[in-house]
């Protein structure tokens, strides 16, 4: 057996999932597609006593598009979002970034909210959420709250979700076509060495970087060009406090932030 022993509970209602979660708190984990959590269980990096499966909850398997935002339920698989006909017009940044999330064979199981819950600092979906300024919908027994992306990601694989809270859905602001995404990884589909997203804002640009700091990190800048842009990118690259690891040196990561950043910011400010 690969994972340590646990009790598997297939929730039949949202109420049941929240009740079991309230009972067991930090000893329980929610499982959706399992494409992050199952690897953690197999390596015994995670050893929950109870696993609560939410994938039979039909109410979580929906994409709701309203004016200004798209709400994606916790049961929506990445492949389903990628196949959503409105993706390119409603969430253009996601239509660019999502093909970089894992592979077709993991996107067929993995969910959008599951990747956010896992909060790997080099994952594409958390980066896109921070770049667009989206929010998470959290629910516990008798309580619901929304948490902005920047507050949600609290550290490497750590989030602001309390032990008894379930991520019910995520909302992405929709419609901003002036956006760009680029990633450097050893292989397409691997976790990013550096991933960057740029989004045009009212006054200028928001530029976000994943894979360097412990959490995806964004900066809002006015319309910058020339050496002012270079200086801003250089300052940001150093503030991200890059580290050397087996995949790349800190210096290489800073180089990528500066080079990709210049391209992407120019592209969206054109």
């Amino acid at each position: 057996m690969k994972p340590a022993a646990f009790d598997y509970v297939r929730a039949e209602t949202l109420g049941e999932a929240i009740e079991v979660l309230a009972q067991h708190g930090g000893d329980a984990r929610i499982i959706a597609g399992g494409q992050s959590l199952m690897a953690m269980l197999n390596m015994r990096l995670a050893r929950p006593k109870v696993l609560i499966d939410i994938m039979r909850l039909r109410e979580l398997d929906r994409i709701d598009s309203t004016s200004g935002s798209v709400k994606i339920g916790a049961g929506v698989r990445q492949a389903a979002l990628l196949a959503w006909p409105e993706l390119a017009t409603s969430l253009p940044l996601l239509s660019k970034a999502l093909p970089w999330t894992g592979h077709a064979q993991t996107r067929s199981r993995g969910t959008v909210c599951g990747s956010l819950a896992h909060a790997d600092p080099s994952a594409e979906l958390p980066l896109a959420l921070v770049a667009l300024g989206g929010e998470l919908h959290l629910r516990s027994a008798g309580k619901q709250r929304k948490v902005a992306a920047r507050e949600f990601f609290a550290g490497m694989m750590a989030t602001a979700r309390a032990d008894d809270e379930l991520i019910e859905a995520v909302s992405f602001p929709s419609g901003n076509a002036r956006c760009a995404f680029r990633e450097v990884a050893r292989r397409h589909g691997d976790f990013a060495i550096v991933a960057c997203a740029a989004v045009a804002t009212k006054d200028g640009v928001r530029f976000a970087v994943g894979g360097v700091a412990d959490v995806p990190t964004a900066r809002d800048w006015p319309r910058l060009e020339g050496s002012a842009l270079d200086d801003a990118l250089n300052g940001f690259a150093h503030e991200l406090d890059a580290r050397d690891d087996v995949h790349a040196t800190a210096r290489y990561r800073r180089d990528l932030v500066r080079l990709i950043g210049r391209d992407l910011v120019r592209e969206v400010l054109q």
Binding site: Q35, M38, R109
Partner: peptide
């Protein structure tokens, strides 16, 4: 850990990694 694909089977017609599926 769902990286190599040696364990891929079809679940309801879609390719899935069976090592990370309970």
């Amino acid at each position: 850990t769902s990286q190599c694909g040696a364990c891929i089977v079809h679940i309801d017609g879609r390719a899935v990694k069976s090592c990370t599926t309970l």
